[in-house]
């Protein structure tokens, strides 16, 4: 009998916490604007995790708060109740089974989105992005043009080929999500498909020394005609 009311109380507390989380996450969106096709995959993986983990958090916190309130000792000499061993064993096995299943399904979800992100290496436009302490350089081998900004065309697949002249840097535009280091001695491709016209900021995301904080560049996503015009004007 007493166990039933405890379960009801824990369920109510957990529901309250879950509602609170939901309220906060809708009021303050957890991710910035999504401006690339790849962002959709990242966000889908993220949202899956957010739901599962929000639920786990609500349940565990609900349980803990209930226990601390309901099982506090009123007098110091009171003693807790020992657990029945066979029921204890059942709880252990059940807990393990659930956590293994949950972990494997989260890993499966992650693998699924990872596959979507890395399976297709083809691209329409190549851009060589050369990093050095503390600036970015952009070169378009197909049109043999240099850019002072990173111009990209909406809806096209871009292969960003990252190189570095000195130390490790990293390419990150938060709205595009994906991040990739630029490593000396390597040319590392990163496929991005911008979906929204606008100006974004490219940030160096690997500590590269004194002026790392200031290593930024403007990213400009343009419609097809604008992009073509720019490629000609640039040279």
């Amino acid at each position: 009998m007493k166990n039933k009311s405890a379960v009801a109380a824990i369920a109510a507390l957990s529901a309250l916490i879950a509602w609170g989380l939901h309220f906060v996450f809708t009021r303050f969106p957890t991710m910035p604007l999504a401006a690339s096709e790849q962002a959709a995959h990242v966000d889908s993986a993220w949202n899956g995790l957010l739901i599962v983990e929000g639920a786990i958090y609500a349940l565990v916190m609900g349980y803990l708060i209930y226990c601390v309130y309901a099982f506090r000792a009123k007098k110091r000499e009171e003693q807790g109740q020992k657990f029945d061993r066979s029921r204890g064993r059942f709880v252990e096995v059940a807990w393990l089974a659930v956590s293994v299943a949950l972990t494997l399904s989260l890993a499966a979800l992650g693998s699924h989105e990872l596959r979507a992100l890395i399976s297709d290496p083809t691209a329409d436009i190549d851009i060589e992005v050369r990093a050095s302490q503390f600036s970015w350089e952009f070169y378009y081998p197909q049109t043999k043009t240099f850019g002072d900004k990173l111009y990209m065309e909406k809806g096209k697949r871009h292969r960003i080929i990252l190189t570095s002249k000195d130390v490790i840097h990293a390419f990150w535009v938060p709205e595009f999500r994906l991040k990739q280091d630029a490593v000396p001695g390597k040319a590392i491709p990163l496929i991005l498909t911008p979906t929204k016209v606008g100006e974004y900021t490219l940030l160096c995301n690997q500590l590269c020394g004194r002026d790392h904080y200031d290593m930024r560049a403007i990213v400009s996503v343009l419609e097809h005609e604008e992009f073509e015009k720019n490629m000609k004007a640039e040279f």
């Binding site: 992650g110 989105e113 990293a170 938060p174 999500r177 991040k179 690997q206």
Partner: peptide, 12 residues
């Protein structure tokens, strides 16, 4: 730990 989300969250 989840690679797709880490590609966004890494080093932030």
């Amino acid at each position: 730990a989840d690679a797709p989300t880490d590609l966004h969250l890494h080093d932030t």
